[in-house]
Design a protein around this nucleic acid. Structure first.
Ligand code: SF4
Ligand code: SF4
Lengths: 141, 141
DNA sequence: GTAAAGGCGACCAATCTGGTCCGATATTAG
DNA sequence: CTAATATCGGACCAGATTGGTCGCCTTTAC
């Protein structure tokens, strides 16, 4: 019953969580020095999933990117300079360290993994890609 | 019954099809000028899925990366210089043009898409990423 | 004490990917 | 002619990941 189910490419894509995280971080960055924003406020302001947003923020807090204040008037604020927060770091926090080559997908392991002349070049590629994501900071995005 | 089901990150990853394509292309590159390899041979030599390999090769043939020879002694060979075949091109052929930002996931469309100051920066990032993949040719991988 | 906030774990539904199984046709070597 | 190859198409399903929700608990402001 859906009009256009354009199949979407999942590969080489940012996860939704990372996207949400970037949205939230960007909002926190625009905050005054003493202010804070609650997860609920962030969610309602940007239309993010209400129950998922706190989880994302919590991960960021664990990782030390944002600082959480408990209590009734609590909320989140940036814990570090916006210049030191990169897209790559956010991705690592929320999705884990990605591997470009699909050598191990879940339980499946590629049977050529022992002797494959593709792994190392792809590893280099991956590092280059992450470097790109690492050069993009919260400040200049 | 599986020992370590390490959850794998699907994001920022090459699809299996693209991986297979690279494996096959690399093998074709090592071929003599007049020789060719059949999909069946490629599959058995590298342990690729027998029924999927012809499909992948067919896509590459459509795109003009490899040349298919019909008939009993047919097979595939590279149709272009290895220097002109890039990882990015293979990905585009097999998975489509990836978008870094998950603005549209299938039917879902992000509700902030109209006014989002994240899209354009992420678009730039995406272009940079694809440039990285575009600089890696079949020759120097 | 109460309300509002964060933290955490478990769970379920939607979705995508990969892989398989079909079938039919054109082409070429031998 | 026969066999083996490529081409094209589609339908289908099982596995895995992702995203989203629910529920309960702790902490803090007022
Ligand atoms: S073929 Fe090589 S690169 Fe691709 S998955 Fe297997 S081991 Fe990794
Ligand atoms: S928030 Fe912006 S970048 Fe992220 S999906 Fe929505 S529109 Fe795209």
């Amino acid at each position: 019953m859906v009009a256009f189910t354009r199949p979407t490419v999942q590969m080489l894509r940012l996860s939704r969580k990372s996207d949400y995280a970037l949205v939230a971080l960007k909002a926190l960055r625009a905050l005054g020095p003493g202010d804070a924003l609650s997860a609920r406020e962030l969610a309602s302001r940007f239309g993010l999933p209400v129950d998922l947003t706190p989880k994302v923020l919590a991960r960021l807090a664990q990782a030390g990117l944002v600082q959480a204040t408990l209590g009734k008037t609590g909320g989140y604020r940036l814990a570090r300079d916006a210049e030191s927060i990169t897209v790559a770091e956010v991705v690592r926090i929320l999705d884990g360290d990605p591997e470009l080559a699909p050598c191990r997908e879940g339980i499946l392991e590629c049977n050529r993994i022992a002797d494959c002349d593709l792994r190392h070049p792809l590893g280099n590629l991956q590092r280059e890609m992450m470097n790109v994501l690492d050069r993009m900071t919260l400040a200049n995005l």
